[in-house]
Amino acid sequence: MAGAAIACDAISKSYGEVRAVDALSLTVPEGAVCGFLGPNGSGKTTTIRMIVNILMPDAGSIRIQGRAAGADTKDLIGYLPEERGLYQKMKVGEMLEFLAELKRVPASEAKGRVRRWLERVELGAWADKKVNDLSKGMQQKIQFIAAVIADPPILILDEFSSGLDPVNANQLKDILLDLRAQGKTILFSTHRMEEAERLCDYVCLIHRGRKVLDGKLADVRAAAGKSTLRVSYRGEAALLRQAPGVLGVDDFGNAAELKLSPEAQSGAGVAAIVRFLAPQLELTGCEQLEPTLNQIFLETVGAASVTPPGAGAGAANG
């Protein structure tokens, strides 16, 4: 697909008997911030490792900015793995320069970049310290710099905020927003829905290795429907049940939440309800509510158990 930063076409990956990822298709447009959501063990990390070309899909194909994923496309992606890892015995500055050079940043330029990034995250004074002299929070920030140091057009962050204290999380979030403003494509996995809700404009939801939902966050929410209509009213409550498309009523006396049928969730449907109620009741307020991503997630995954599919696949913990 033209214009897609990342395009996975029906990719699958099995570990022995366990299908970690099952015919997953995923498209992330250029410049999008895409939340990759799913419970633990749903195949997020396996999918990401295939996109970064650390693992090969058993079937299906992956294109990065239109090129088949391979050794060449690795330079297009900055990757923050879920399992954080740094050379503990190296000096912070030298290690970041090494990682930059590994992504083809010229040695002459790497030094300056590392210095600027370290200053940006307020670790400028630590360049000559060994990595294992740093606190865990500081190492997290170093790990983040490692992902962005080569200035790649695509960033893939696996559970990027896990283990960060609120101050540092906020600092990195600001940097992320800045990178998004620069037009970077960002794919980040998380199981924290409210985080995805705040940052993403695209979401992809997977469960048991299969995609259950994807698209623009706004569309997803719209598709999930504004299934709740909250009305403030004075009058006969029994009338509420008779309104067209109302499946159920949760009445609080002078306000009630109406559960809408899918057809009734459109503007026209709501208008019809209002038209039906207005002559007979005194309506003082009317608000159609979108479900949270968390509600959507729970509803989509539904009654299905959220335990990971089969145990024992060592690498399938994403």
């Binding site: 490792r49 070309n53 050794a71 690795k74 990757y79 793995p81 890892g85 740094l86 050379y87 490692a146």
Partner: peptide, 18 residues
């Protein structure tokens, strides 16, 4: 590299053979 888990960062930049 395995126990410090930096392998994954390295493999995101180079192929394992290199």
């Amino acid at each position: 590299e395995k126990t410090s888990r930096i392998s994954e960062v390295l493999l995101s930049a180079v192929d394992p053979f290199s």
